[in-house]
Design a protein around this nucleic acid. Structure first.
Length: 560
RNA sequence: GUCCCCGUAGCUCAGCUGGAUAGAGCAACGGACUUCUAAUCCGUAGGCCGGGGGUUCGAAUCCCUCCGGGGACGCCA
């Protein structure tokens, strides 16, 4: 249920009706009605909504915008209109729409009725998959994964509220080159730990966590390892380590409030021969060729700068080949839209991935890739170079430990995915007190406190149906109602633009309006009817804050 | 060299499908607690939206170009 959208549609329909009337009467001549908007003006003095129709129609109708607006208003009868109170022409030809306040008084009932579902929009029938984080199971999660996690999970929540069926998926890169290197790293550590003098591979995973994993392995299964031939031992170790890493990743992400529907193993693509089949499909369409002993995809046909290797000269598939097979699998599973959250360092991969999707006969627009700029980590003003291979990184676990889940998620999601992010851990810790997430959480806690206070005085939340909500006439009260009314619309915009940061900013706005209200008016008072109306206002504010916080994975504490 | 992202208040960043007088937090300055949590509020100050050109009735927003910062360009993933 989205009241704002409903009213916008109502205004739009009314204007279109009026225009048609004008055309029939010969007052305005036009071929087609341009795609105009009903928007919320920045300035409150410009009404509740405004439309730009007259300006857009000026050229085709060969008429001054203000004259067009005049004609529209003249043929628009609003005397019995359920929402519109007043219309006026302003500026270059804007039509400003003023509503009766009564539409805002529908909000309390609506929010109370929907509760935690408030914010939900009507079903689109679309099935969307969001794939995010998908970190290699060869090491710990780092800051970039943390940002991807915060953005991906929030976006999935937003898309759900926007009326879509949503699935979250984690792609486990448990095959290919880096797994080979991982295996060699494990083996080297194993041999070192059992007293042999071996050189650690140059490009190996040097992190302490690899050593720890091997130590655990030795402790649990050394008897098996001793018996196995080298190649089988390596295989055994890597399977053990990947399993450990995946379960660690899962646990850490759950600690960050992220739960996946599907954990998809790259290895299964190899095992089920899906990569070969996909390459075969491309070859059938004549999109591949052989050169230098390798098999290439003609990605230049799809706007890429150069062709890409699918099968190396050693006949091992590249990561790209596996990824094409993976996307083929996704589309075969029937998603209307597939969204990937990638680090910006993968941007070169976008054009050829879309090309491959198109080559396979799918609409490339049904694949959306949200590129997220990388996180640079600082500690006390000094940049920290992060590398899994050298083992110098700050893990997501450490981040949660140092900064806290709520602050970290809010921080990541507050900024646009497009913006480069410098994260100074020292600063984040120091700023803990001033962190904006607490401003929002405090608003929620304060409302809960009012209800605790009420309870000690034996005052309880009245049933909304018996409450005179039209007693809420103060500017601060109306502003809160208006903001709450906007929530479902805000979800739609955030979904359309894949912009989770909008929800964080919405929360700051709503919390700010609440704090202003709190400082100028009292909820609990001798005026029982007004008190009841305000208790309802507080409760729907609390519900909306909580729902929006839930969207971005931040908790709504009852006390602080 | 080619491609991607960014450049908005002292700092960190918002700004929707182009819309009317440019927004928030922090920092600065001045105020507000006998009353539901002062982790709050109210007020003041702070801007050539990197520069230039173009499209448009209208540009922070779209296009071109230049400057500055970051990143990607492998039979790695």
């Amino acid at each position: 249920m989205n009241l704002v959208e409903e009213i916008k549609e109502h205004i739009k329909r009314s204007i279109i009706e009026a225009l048609k009337g004008c055309k029939t009467a010969g007052k305005i001549s036009y071929e087609e009605i341009p795609d105009f908007v009903i928007e919320v003006p920045r300035e409150k003095e410009h009404g509740d909504f405004a439309s730009n129709i007259a300006m857009l129609l000026a050229k085709p109708a060969k008429m001054a915008p203000r004259l067009i607006a005049n004609e529209i208003l003249a043929s628009l009868d609003i005397t019995a209109d359920p929402y519109i109170d007043k219309l006026e022409i302003a500026g270059a030809g804007f039509i400003n729409v003023y509503l009766h306040n009564n539409w805002l008084y529908k909000i309390p009932n609506l929010v109370m009725e929907l509760g935690e579902d408030y914010g939900n929009n009507k079903n689109t029938g679309q099935k969307i998959q969001v794939e995010f984080v998908s970190a290699n199971p060869t090491g710990n999660l780092h800051m970039g994964n943390a940002r991807g996690g915060a953005i991906g999970d929030s976006l999935a929540n937003i898309l759900k509220l926007a009326g879509n069926e949503v699935e979250r998926e984690f792609y486990i890169n448990d095959a290919g080159n880096q797994i080979e290197i991982f295996a060699l790293s494990l083996e080297a550590r194993y041999l070192q730990l059992t007293g042999q003098d071996v050189v650690f591979p140059d490009n190996g995973y040097a992190g302490q966590d690899v050593v720890d994993t091997v130590k655990e392995l030795i402790k649990e299964h050394n008897d098996i390892l001793l018996e196995l031939p080298a190649a089988e031992r390596r295989q055994y170790m890597v399977e053990y380590a990947v399993k450990k890493k995946v379960s660690y990743i899962k646990k850490t992400l759950e600690g960050f409030g992220i739960y996946y529907d599907v954990w998809f193993s790259e290895k299964t693509l190899h095992e089920k021969n899906q990569i070969a089949e996909t390459i075969h499909l491309l070859t059938e369409q004549d999109y591949t060729y052989e050169s230098d002993d390798a098999i290439w995809f003609k990605s230049t046909l799809f706007g890429d700068e150069k062709d890409e290797v699918l099968l190396r000269s050693n006949r091992f598939p590249t990561y790209f080949a596996a990824d094409i097979a993976y996307h083929q699998d996704k589309f075969e599973r029937g998603f209307d839209k597939v969204i990937n959250i990638w680090g910006a360092d993968h941007h070169g991969h976008v054009a050829r991935m879309k090309g491959a999707v198109k080559a396979l006969g799918h609409n490339p627009d049904s694949l959306d890739i949200l590129l997220m700029q990388l996180v640079r980590l600082y500690r006390g003003g000094n940049i920290v170079k992060m590398s899994k291979r050298t083992g110098t990184l700050v893990t997501l676990d450490e981040l949660i430990e140092e900064v806290g889940k709520d602050a970290a998620r809010f921080f990541f999601v507050m900024r646009s995915p497009d913006s480069h992010l410098d994260f100074d851990l020292e600063l984040a810790k120091q700023e803990n007190q001033d962190n904006t997430v607490y401003y929002v959480q405090y608003a929620h806690a304060r409302i809960c406190s009012i209800f605790r206070q009420a309870e000690t005085a034996n005052i309880s939340l009245p049933n909304v149906s018996g409450v005179k909500v039209d007693l809420l006439k103060e500017a601060e009260e109306l502003a809160i109602l208006r903001k709450i009314a906007d929530f479902p619309e805000e979800i739609l915009i955030a979904a359309r633009n894949m912009a989770p940061q909008r929800i964080a900013h919405y929360l700051l706005d709503l919390a700010g309006l609440f704090h202003s209200f709190y400082n100028s008016h009292r909820v609990l008072s001798d005026d029982i009817e007004l008190q009841n109306a305000r208790l309802v206002l507080m409760d729907i504010t609390r519900i909306t804050l909580k729902n929006a916080l839930t969207v971005i994975g931040v908790s709504a504490p009852e006390q602080m």
